[in-house]
Amino acid sequence: MDIQLLTLILFAGAVCAGLLGALTGLGGGVIVIPLLTLGLGFDMRYAVGTALITSIATSSGAATAYIREGITNIRIGMFLEIATTLGAVCGAMVAIYLPTGFIAVIYGVVLVFSAAMIVRKKNADGNVAAPDSPLAKRLKLNGTYPTANGTVSYKVRKVMGGFSMMGLAGILSGILGIGSGALKVLAMDTVMKIPFKVSTTTSNFMVGVTAAASAVIYLQRGYIDPGLALPVIPGVLTGAFFGSKILMKANVKILRIIFAILICFLSIQMIYNGITGRI
């Protein structure tokens, strides 16, 4: 394919990834991996490397908006980062020995799960009446966040349960090149009972760090190619910028359902192509 045309196609894809990231909290891998493998027929390994770059760009782009609001719980994020970075390193080490078709199938399964996470019911308030977790207290994980009706405080439960799930999220992120934001939110939301506003922004903070941990390895293996990174970095940030504008105006609920259906369709394609050995 002609290099200018490829740059244009990837730029358009990256803008979509940035938009999706801003509207749903999903990392960029959801768009970039299917585009490169199913759409353009590229090697799965280039797709993984490019997706990692997309995830970091989405995370850093969105984080600049979130931190100002003061909702991110840096302590929760930092503590759980131990699990996700260790997982990401293991995942990236193991990934060389896995056939690309197998990686495509795992990716498809994670996609279905991410689609379900977009439209799920959210844990809005957290669990204020939850019993104290001694470990959460010792680690100073309990916190507060501002709302229109004043400051709300929350307590963190099942710290070790959340920690081990973050390890799994890290492994998947290392193998697939995605941020596995959906798994991270699930761990914080369902297991640790952290309120939605805090879990989303903290997960976003962690996605960038986890993806950077794997990217360090993938860069040295040559999975990250400048020809593919070139349109992706400006594209994602353009998309994220307009996404955050739309987020304030549009009916996001309908958008989320459309995205969820699209993602399910992509995941079936990935699984089918992975099993039949076409990826």
Partner: peptide
């Protein structure tokens, strides 16, 4: 993030000039 975008854009323009007309090879 802004530094990264600016560097990428500068390098990108050079890259496109230096690789003009070449076919891409990313397929397995």
């Amino acid at each position: 993030v802004i530094a990264s975008v600016l560097i990428t854009l500068c390098g990108g323009i050079l890259y496109l000039f230096q690789h003009q007309g070449l076919a891409t090879q990313y397929a397995p």
